[in-house]
């Protein structure tokens, strides 16, 4: 039995090794953040011609912009996300795993301003770790990643259970491992109570 659980522990770990590393990096990236708000400084700005069709609602303009630009890893703009900026121009934020494509429809100039707000690698890894199968409209590549993330999530729980079993069934159960376990549990419990 112990040998079987050990194999499960090892193979599950190897099959989801990269994801577990990403979870660790994501935790460190979140720790290093200095504010809840993410930086939104444009990485590149470009312009392109665009003549909005006359007498149509903002949603149709947003859909036309989406079809015209074909921005990678984005999806059609939902109605609630359509807004106007301080100059009263239509501002469309196309969110994606790498950041935001902020498209401003400059109707008087018949063109679009496209700002690419690119997330750092740390934020990218944070978002990769948070990708779930809850979003059926996500781009296919992200859904494939989400599927593997789901597997890694269950594997993480498997390690916890199998690791606990392997520790408790080992012949050499050292006092310092119990001490470490007690320290982790105490820390968690005290913080839980402090927040409650």
């Amino acid at each position: 039995m112990r040998n079987l659980v050990l194999k499960l522990h090892i193979y599950a770990g190897l099959l989801t090794f990269t994801q577990l590393m990403i979870y660790g990096f994501a935790g460190l990236a979140a720790t290093a953040q200095t504010a809840a708000e993410r930086p939104k400084v444009p990485h590149t700005i470009r312009h392109t011609t665009f003549t909005p069709p006359p007498s149509v609602p903002d949603k149709e303009i947003a859909d036309a912009v989406y079809r015209e630009l074909k921005l990678p890893l984005t999806r059609p703009m939902p109605l609630f996300a359509i807004k106007r900026n301080a100059d009263n121009d239509l501002q469309l934020d196309f969110y994606n795993i790498n950041g935001i494509y902020r498209v401003v429809v400059l109707e008087r100039e018949n063109r679009l301003r496209i700002e690419e707000i690119r997330n750092s690698l740390a934020i990218f890894l944070e978002d990769m770790h948070a990708t779930t199968m809850n979003d059926p409209e996500a781009p296919r590549l992200l859904r494939i990643w989400a599927f593997y993330n789901e597997l890694a999530m269950w594997c993480l729980l498997t390690f916890v259970v199998s690791g606990l079993y392997l520790w408790l069934s080992a012949q050499a159960r050292t006092w310092w491992a119990w001490g470490s376990f007690a320290a982790g549990t105490m820390t968690f419990a005290v913080l839980w109570m402090a927040f409650r």
Partner: peptide, 17 residues
């Protein structure tokens, strides 16, 4: 491996669940 995993156990349960 054991030392780090045993300390992290309650947190990993929290993250997993």
């Amino acid at each position: 491996h054991l030392l780090l995993a045993s300390f992290s156990l309650p947190f990993l349960v929290m993250y997993g669940v």
